[in-house]
Design a protein around this nucleic acid. Sequence first.
DNA 1: ACCCAGGGTCGTC
DNA 2: GACGACCCTGGG
Length: 287
Amino acid sequence: MKEQIFVLEKYNSFEPRDIFECGQCFRWNRQEDGSYTGVFKENVLNVKKDNGKIIFKGICTQNIINTCIEYFDLDTDYNKIKDKLSKIDEPLKESIKYGQGIRILKQDLWETIISFIISANNNIPRIKGIIERISKKYGNKIEWNKEEYYTFPTPEQLSKATVEDLRKLGLGFRDKRIYETTKIINENKNFLNELQNEKDSALVREKLLSLSGVGPKVADCIMLFGMQRYEVFPIDVWIRRVMNELYIKNEDETKVSKKEIENLAQNKYGNLAGLAQQYLFFARRER
DNA sequence: ACCCAGGGTCGTC
DNA sequence: GACGACCCTGGG
């Protein structure tokens, strides 16, 4: 396939570092020149900010412009979102300054499900390593610029892996969870479509929770990063820390109930809670 | 060498 | 509802 290039000159809110390192994705890697290269669907792309322009370059199965508009959600006005959130309170305003270039990617639902099951009680370098090894073993190879890249395997492809195979790739106790969830989704071809088409977020959540390895936190991440449900507020150790530091001020953050954080987020941030979560999370974790 | 934490979930009580 | 176990890895 032929390389394509797309130069984006007019945009609001686009900072590669913020987008790729705010914790929403695991397959984008920083290059020596500060650009990022990643794989999504059957595409390999390099994204570079140069003189205020964003340069997208790589191998796409379809038109690179449409591919980027879709994946980077370029039609959404983040200035409007940030203005709205900044007015809520000072701490959030400060966090947004730190990650002002964040955009929530429209990631593949299936890949997001598997990736966040892997993320449970795990650290980011290891999560990235596991996903890379899974892709290399079960995905398709794409060559570009004399480098080899691998697509994330489809449910069919990943269903070839046994529990033992997965354990060998370093999944640890998550091996069984990935195996079982892959089996369910592979054998029920409508599972993902039905999930996508379900309007009621509560039902979506319920369905996700039925999958092995998907608890409340992972379900929220899947809905936020794989389904554009910006009202959910994933609560992890970092967000618990921030919310306690900023608002609750309990001397022992582990004693703060999830319910209290949930209510606080819902009342303060409403249907943009997920976006607020990203700004807070990123600003706190990078500190 | 040892301990601990890491974008939690699951099984058990 | 609370509590411990759980693969594995990098950092103190």
